[in-house]
Design a protein around this nucleic acid. Structure first.
Lengths: 255, 255
DNA sequence: TGCCTTTCATAACATGGGTTATCCAGGGGC
DNA sequence: GCCCCTGGATAACCCATGTTATGAAAGGCA
């Protein structure tokens, strides 16, 4: 059945890329010194704020979204435990998204300059953080390609697989049936369609034994067909780094 | 009238963010040591290649695209002179896009490790390069939001403004009427619509005196209405950096 | 317990944009 | 000058998805 919420820290995330030295782990642990419990709906930052604080997400889910003047909302990122939030917007004078907790959770805020310190102190960590940031962006680019080229069924299939693989990456205990705190409305804001059509399409997919979505959980019934429908490529989220960059650096434990 | 092609180097791009020291300029100049003329249609890299080489684009245009098994093409980035090509995919073991020259041009290839050297040698340059990379990604994210929320007219308006502001940034001589080596088919691959509909919509927009696109050039007739239609926000491409990061660093010349 | 809000399901209808096809114009090569 | 080839315009038709509306189920809260 669905697994219970899991506590993950950034180093659990980053060590997938490279083996981290004790110094690296200590640097990361400093970032996560001040965990803070936040309620569902809590806003970590708002569009137009200056990004002076970054967050690691230790437990719970969050998302970032654009609000247009007309009040429409477009979700850009979904954050899961272990994710680093805010790097995308770090170099900008102002945030362009709101970031809101989707569930209650625990975040660790730290000042942006700490990241600069890290960049100066550890090239392994710099690389791992860049890799993590690049993968966050790759997720968005993939979503763009997917959305532009495919119909509603494929969009949903793609996104569901994205979630599944991302969750399993940081918590291998995740099964085919897992907790997802996203409503159909959230799906619609992510995938650029109306919630009515999300509902229609989910019903259709359920009747085809592809997947089943309830209020709280998501059950993947046929990974292979979902992969085929969506042409999702798990490699796009790979933990493997470019070998041209890692000469001389310690490799990750899984190798 | 339309302006002639312009030669730009990366430092012309990066110095918009921060004042570059002579050392910084020298480091960048080293990257651009080996300019190479390439023909229209030349492929700089292909999906599945390992990213060992980055390029600066000194002159001419290029784009990167995904090809799906079914042969559909989705354009992700459009590169203009001064752009750094390949950072997005740098940390991945394989490229996910093809990059093709849209015009003849001049590129400067350099090995990926040089970038690592730069990161270690100059924190100003690191920051400027990160900022440039973040803006490339922001362009894609903006396009995603725009495409999901708006109809064909707004998509085109948005993209046209994106081009206009990006070109003017590196070459202030660019006027309302400028050269664009993109066909309607290219527009369609960028914006996720058919070329037939691009044609329909361009005709409509021309009849409304919004803009006029010919084979080679693009003429913006009514910036204000285009801005209104597309809710394009030039701030999303700002050269201004996050003040929380630049304490102690020299500011850009325009400040 | 009952109330109230949010989420989900479903139906009837409207439409933007996809599909396919044909023709025309421009531009490069010879 | 002629030929091709690519790019662009236009039309007729159709379908996936948006729109609007309504009711029911779920879940929080007093």
């Amino acid at each position: 059945m669905t697994t219970a919420p899991h506590e993950v820290c950034v180093s659990d995330n980053l060590m997938h890329f490279l083996a981290l030295s004790d110094t690296d782990k200590r640097l990361l642990a400093e970032l996560e010194q001040s965990p803070r419990s936040v309620a569902r709906g809590h806003m970590l930052w708002e569009a137009a704020d200056t990004p002076h604080t970054l967050y690691t997400l230790r437990c719970g889910w969050a998302y970032s979204m654009h609000k247009s003047e007309s009040g429409e909302e477009q979700v850009l990122d979904v954050f899961i435990p272990g994710d680093l939030m805010g790097i995308r917007e770090l170099t900008f004078p102002a945030h362009s998204t709101d970031v809101v907790m989707l569930t209650e959770g625990v975040v660790c805020p730290f000042p942006a300059e700490r990241l600069l310190d890290i960049f100066q102190q550890s090239s392994s960590l710099s690389l791992a953080i860049h890799a993590a940031a690049a993968r966050q962006q790759a997720i968005i680019s993939e979503r763009l390609v997917n959305i532009l080229r495919h119909d509603a069924r494929a969009r949903i299939a793609h996104f569901v697989l994205e979630l599944y693989f991302r969750l399993r990456r940081v918590d291998p205990a995740v099964e085919r049936d897992f907790l997802v705190p996203l409503s159909q409305g959230d799906f619609s804001k992510l995938l650029g369609m109306t919630k009515v059509h999300v509902s229609r399409t989910l019903s259709e997919m359920e009747s085809q034994n592809l997947l089943r979505k309830t209020r709280k959980a998501l059950q993947i019934q046929d990974v292979d067909r979902l992969l085929a429908i969506s042409s999702f490529d798990p490699m796009k989220l790979t933990d493997r780094l470019n070998p041209a960059l890692t000469r001389g650096l310690p490799t990750a434990c899984w190798e």
